[in-house]
Computed example of a mutant assay.
Amino acid sequence: MLLIGAAHAADRIDINTADASTLQQGLTNVGPHKADAIVAYRRQHGPFLRVEDLARVKGIGTATVERNRRRMTVGTMKAPAAEPPRRVVPASVPRR
């Protein structure tokens, strides 16, 4: 049963990386105009953090988000890599 869930998750459309054609073909009530609007919004505002954020796109309402919720994902958001701490080098003391 666990494998079925993993396979289902793999079939989801990542709304942060999918092109307009994939969005149009894979999501209900998303035609070419809405798919282009999703891609344009993503380019202008950056990646979606949650599936619900898709409703911010003009022409996409909460009903469309809910209808497609199980078909979408925002992928795995990676935290920025932390820089290693910088080593503080003590200032040299002038000799007398």
Rank of each mutant, 00 (worst) to 15 (best):
V89N: 04
P84M: 05
D11Q: 14
A18E: 04
Q24D: 08
H33W: 00
D36W: 01
A91D: 14
M77T: 11
I15L: 10
G5P: 06
E52I: 06
V74L: 12
V51C: 08
A20K: 10
Q24Y: 00
L54E: 08
H8V: 14
R87F: 03
L54T: 05
R67E: 09
G59E: 05
R50N: 13
V88Y: 02
S21W: 01
V74E: 14
A37H: 01
V74Q: 12
Q24G: 09
D53Y: 02
P32K: 07
P84C: 03
T62H: 07
P80G: 03
G59Y: 00
A18C: 08
N68I: 00
A9M: 05
V74F: 01
R87E: 12
A91R: 06
D53A: 07
Q25C: 03
R95T: 08
A81W: 02
V57L: 11
M77Q: 14
P84Q: 04
E83T: 06
R86E: 15
A55M: 03
P47K: 07
V30S: 07
V93S: 13
A81F: 02
A18D: 14
A40V: 05
A55L: 02
A18N: 11
R95S: 11
P85W: 00
L2H: 13
P90L: 02
R67P: 12
A7V: 04
V57N: 06
L3G: 12
A79D: 10
T64M: 05
D53T: 02
L23S: 13
N29R: 10
Y41M: 12
T17M: 09
G61V: 05
N29F: 00
L49V: 04
R42G: 10
L2Q: 15
M77A: 12
P32G: 07
D36Q: 10
I60Y: 02
G61R: 06
P94N: 10
A9S: 15
A40H: 06
A20G: 13
M72W: 01
N29V: 01
V30D: 06
R43A: 14
S21T: 10
A79R: 15
S21L: 14
D14W: 01
G59M: 06
D11T: 13
M1G: 15
L54V: 05
R56M: 01
G59T: 09
A40I: 03
L54P: 12
D36T: 10
L49G: 06
D19C: 10
V88N: 07
A82F: 03
R86K: 13
R86M: 09
E52D: 14
V30I: 15
R50L: 05
P32H: 02
G31R: 12
R96F: 00
S21K: 14
M72I: 04
A82I: 04
E66Y: 00
T28V: 09
E83A: 12
A63M: 03
D19F: 03
A18G: 11
T62R: 14
I60E: 03
G61T: 11
A18Q: 03
